[in-house]
C-alpha cells in the first residue's frame, strides 16, 4: 500500500504559489512511506505553506469521505460501539474514583499524629492495608515488638466482627470514634478488653475512625498493666 516516491522530490523545495505536489497529497491520504511521512511531517512543522498544502489535501479527502458510498455494516454494529463507550466511561469513572479514594486515604494518614504517622506511612509502603470486610481495614505496623501492633481504619457504620481475645487488647482511638455494647469512645480514649470480654464495635457516624490496637496474642501484659493503668486510667 506504500507509494513509490522517486522523481517527485523537486517539489520539496517549491515555494509560494505552487507548493502542491503528489508527495503532500500522498502524505495527506496516509499512503506515503513512513520515512517520507516523517520527512514531510518535519518539513510542514518548518514551513507554513507546506502545512497549508497538507491541510488543503485533507479538506479534499474529508469532502470525498462525506460523499462516499456507504458500506453495509454487520448487524448490531452501533450497539457494539455503544457498549464499548459505556465500558470506557465506566473505566474512566472507576479510575477517577480510585485515584480520589487513594488521595483521601493519604490525606487521612497525613493527619495522624506523630509518631504514629511515620510508623503508618512506613507500613503502607512495606505491607499495605489489608481489607477485612466492608469499611474495615487493618495495617500491620510491625513496631519491632513481640506484641501485635495494628492500625485500624473503621468507616462510619462499619461493624467489626464480634470477637474475643486470646489475651488482652488495648485500643487507642486516634481519630473519629467507635461504640460497642459498653459505650462510645473518642480520640484519646483507650479501651481495654480482656480475654473474656465479647464486644462488637461499630464505627461512629461522621468522621472515619482510626484506632491503634496493641494485643498480646496469648502473652499477658503481666507487669505492664499497672503502668498503662496509671497513664490512661482503666475504664
Amino acid at each position: 500500500m506504500l507509494r513509490e516516491t522517486t522523481g517527485i522530490f523537486q517539489s520539496m523545495s517549491a515555494s509560494s504559489s505552487n507548493t502542491f505536489s503528489e508527495l503532500y497529497a500522498a502524505y495527506g491520504a496516509g499512503c506515503l512511506d513512513p520515512a517520507f511521512t516523517l520527512m514531510v511531517g518535519t518539513q510542514s512543522a518548518l514551513r507554513p505553506e507546506i502545512r497549508e498544502a497538507v491541510a488543503l489535501s485533507e479538506v479534499i479527502s474529508g469532502s470525498i469521505l462525506e460523499t462516499a458510498p456507504e458500506a453495509k455494516l454487520t448487524d448490531g454494529a452501533l450497539d457494539r460501539a455503544l457498549a464499548a463507550i459505556d465500558m470506557l466511561d465506566a473505566d474512566e469513572r472507576s479510575s477517577v474514583n480510585a485515584g480520589r479514594a487513594a488521595g483521601e486515604a493519604m490525606e487521612e494518614m497525613l493527619a495522624l499524629p506523630e509518631p504514629l504517622r511515620t510508623a503508618a506511612l512506613d507500613a503502607v509502603g512495606k505491607t499495605g492495608w489489608q481489607a477485612m470486610g466492608r469499611g474495615l481495614k487493618r495495617l500491620n505496623l510491625n513496631a519491632g515488638s513481640r506484641l501485635e501492633t495494628e492500625l485500624y481504619r473503621i468507616a462510619p457504620g462499619a461493624r467489626i466482627p464480634r470477637h474475643t481475645h486470646a489475651g488482652s487488647e488495648y485500643t487507642l482511638v486516634v481519630a473519629g470514634g467507635f461504640s460497642d455494647e459498653r459505650g462510645s469512645y473518642g480520640p484519646g480514649d483507650v479501651v481495654i478488653n480482656g480475654a473474656d470480654d465479647y464486644h462488637q464495635p461499630v464505627g461512629d457516624e461522621g468522621e472515619v475512625c482510626y484506632a491503634l490496637a496493641v494485643r498480646d496474642g496469648g502473652l499477658h501484659f503481666t507487669g505492664m498493666m499497672g503502668f498503662i493503668q496509671r497513664i490512661f486510667g482503666a475504664r
Binding site: M1, L65, A71, L78, A81
Partner: peptide, 23 residues
Amino acid sequence: RPAFSELFDFYAPRIKSYMLRLG
C-alpha cells in the same frame, strides 16, 4: 449517546467503505 449514534450512522458505513477501497 444520541449525538454519537447519529454520527455513527452517517460515518461508520463511509469509513468502512474507505477502508475497503484501500484494500
